[in-house]
């Protein structure tokens, strides 16, 4: 299940999008990347990803709002909130999002969380 799993990556910064896509692809995942909510919802509908990674602050819209919309479409999909801010960590963990990860150049935490969530499902 974990390998070849489909991952939706929502990130408005191109350089980061490219980096995550590359790293996750390196690990064998199929990565669908979206730079905004509209693209993300389309991917959800079209490709039924197994997991979604959302940046909270997207240019022009709110990642949390997007999270609500995604849940409306598919409430089973594990969601990782991925952000530069660490302040909301305690607020969101265990509520709607399945994980909350602060962005870091060291992606081991992200990778580990993806693995665990996919295995859980």
């Amino acid at each position: 299940m974990t390998k070849n799993a489909k991952i939706l990556l929502v990130e408005d910064e191109r350089s980061l999008r490219m980096l995550y896509k590359q790293i996750l692809s390196d690990d064998g995942y199929t990565v669908y990347d979206a730079k905004n909510g509209a693209e993300a919802l389309e991917i959800i509908v079209r490709h039924h990803p197994d997991l979604a990674i959302l940046d909270i602050r997207l240019s022009g819209e709110d990642g949390l709002e997007l999270m609500g919309k995604i849940i409306n479409v598919n409430d089973k999909i594990p969601i990782i909130l991925h952000t530069a801010y660490d302040v909301w960590k305690d607020n969101f963990r265990g509520r709607i999002a399945d994980a909350y990860i602060v962005k870091s150049s060291d992606m081991s935490e992200l990778k580990e969380t993806i693995k665990n969530l996919l295995q859980r499902n």
Binding site: L16, K103, S105
Partner: peptide, 21 residues
């Protein structure tokens, strides 16, 4: 500081992530 940190964190992640890879 929060603003600067946020603005810096994303490029740092990019730089560090690519370097790590």
């Amino acid at each position: 500081a929060a603003h600067v940190a946020h603005e810096i964190r994303n490029p740092l992640v990019t730089i560090g992530g690519w370097a790590r890879r």
